[in-house]
């Protein structure tokens, strides 16, 4: 890494530049650094794959045509691995089918070289915004999943039935336990899932997409 970016906070975004052309890669990294981002260059798809998994937020700027796997192939591979880093394609001469394929596969932008700094930096900040929203959502999901993991089997069962709209009495009858016990478990679920109302609990269940996987979780 070049000097001048040492004083980066833990969560400052990192831009990954994948381009086989040394001078282009260097120039783009340099421009990004001058604009205040941290940048990391990779000469080909393989080098980038070796650096995975990447935990820091950021985005990928990628050339389409490279020796070895192309940019589009790398995108497909990353998608399969559940990559959440937005991809900006940068190409010498992109044609329409190529850009359509890239955008369908989730690329946030498809730029042609030579690219003006304004365009590139706007695309980067847009990508980071998208990535920020995605990672927030991811964080919440992780958090909710953690809460859900903390429930006991009995509590999860009661969670499911509550969300299905069953009354305490019905739940008790179905599980063969007292209505009081059901009430106690239900309070525990609300507590562990950090919600105050039935409505909130239903929403959380929706976010976790629990209905279908209820039986096997």
């Amino acid at each position: 890494m070049e000097q001048g970016i040492i004083a980066m906070t833990e969560n400052s975004p990192l831009i990954h530049v994948v381009d086989d052309d040394d001078s282009v890669r260097k120039a783009i990294s340099r421009l990004l650094q001058a604009a205040g981002y941290e940048a990391q260059g990779y000469a080909n798809a393989g080098e980038f794959l070796l650096a995975l998994p990447i935990s820091t937020p950021g985005c990928i700027i990628m050339d389409v045509r490279m020796p070895g796997p192309s940019g589009l192939e790398l995108q497909t591979a990353l998608n399969r691995q559940g990559n959440i880093l937005p991809i900006i394609f940068l190409t010498g001469h992109g044609d329409i089918p190529m850009s359509v394929q890239a955008m369908k596969a989730g690329a946030v932008d498809f730029l042609t070289k030579p690219v003006q700094s304004q365009t590139l930096l706007a695309a980067v900040s847009n990508a980071l915004e998208i990535q920020g929203r995605a990672s927030q959502q991811q964080e919440r999901m992780d958090y909710l999943r953690n809460c859900y993991q903390s429930l006991t089997d009995r509590e999860r069962e009661i969670f499911r039935l509550v969300v299905q709209g069953k009354l305490n009495k019905q739940i008790g009858a179905q599980l063969g336990i007292a209505e009081r016990t059901v009430k106690a478990h239900r309070a525990q679920v609300m507590n562990k899932m950090e919600v105050n109302s039935l409505a909130d609990l239903v929403r959380v269940a929706g976010e976790l997409q629990l209905e279908t996987e209820f039986s096997d979780v």
């Binding site: 052309d21 001078s23 282009v24 260097k26 120039a27 783009i28 340099r30 421009l31 650094q33 001058a34 604009a35 045509r65 010498g92 001469h93 070289k113 030579p114 690219v115 003006q116 700094s117 590139l120």
Partner: peptide, 25 residues
């Protein structure tokens, strides 16, 4: 011609980025 254009475009793109980085600096 497309390939040749690409071959010229690469250094031109690098020059542009470098010049703009210098401006920012």
């Amino acid at each position: 011609t497309a390939s040749i254009a690409h071959e010229i475009n690469q250094p031109l793109g690098a020059i542009l980025c470098n010049a703009e980085a210098a401006e920012l600096l």
